[in-house]
Amino acid sequence: MFEFLKGTWTDRVLLLVSLVAIVAGWIMIQAYVSSGPPMAEIYHADTLVATYRLPQKGEPPIHLQVEGELGMSEIVINEQGARIASSPCASQRCVLSGPHRHAGDMVACVPNRILIALRGHAESGFDAIVE
């Protein structure tokens, strides 16, 4: 029934090579971003604007405003993770994507040129989770 999904040997070799390269890259990136304490790095274009340690349970949230290409983006970092709370961009996809808390996650608002990248190792023992 699903004969048309099979592909040729060349296709399968290409898929295998691609997946091996992607997984190798993924492992390398995770090894890099999982080191150190859980942090949120906030960038505007080519500039690192701020770095914050993610608040632990019971610690107060961090609110900050970052000036982007279109205007101010409001960023909230709390125990649930980091998110863009408001943005002057038209699509609002960055706002809708919600909070992110895993090492290697990122939230980007391309029109406003704002990026939040998460990195760091969880103290709870979960390797790739910033908590």
Binding site: L5, L15, G25, E41, G104, M106, R113, I114, L115, A117
Partner: peptide
């Protein structure tokens, strides 16, 4: 727009999804 290597943190899982969608779309195109 954003001249930061940190952008690429999110690339591997999206490439895996691209493999899946590319394979299915290719089969449909055939």
């Amino acid at each position: 727009f954003i001249q930061q290597a940190a952008l690429y943190y999110a690339l591997p899982p999206l490439l895996v999804l691209s493999c899946i969608s590319g394979w299915i779309n290719g089969a449909l195109a055939g």
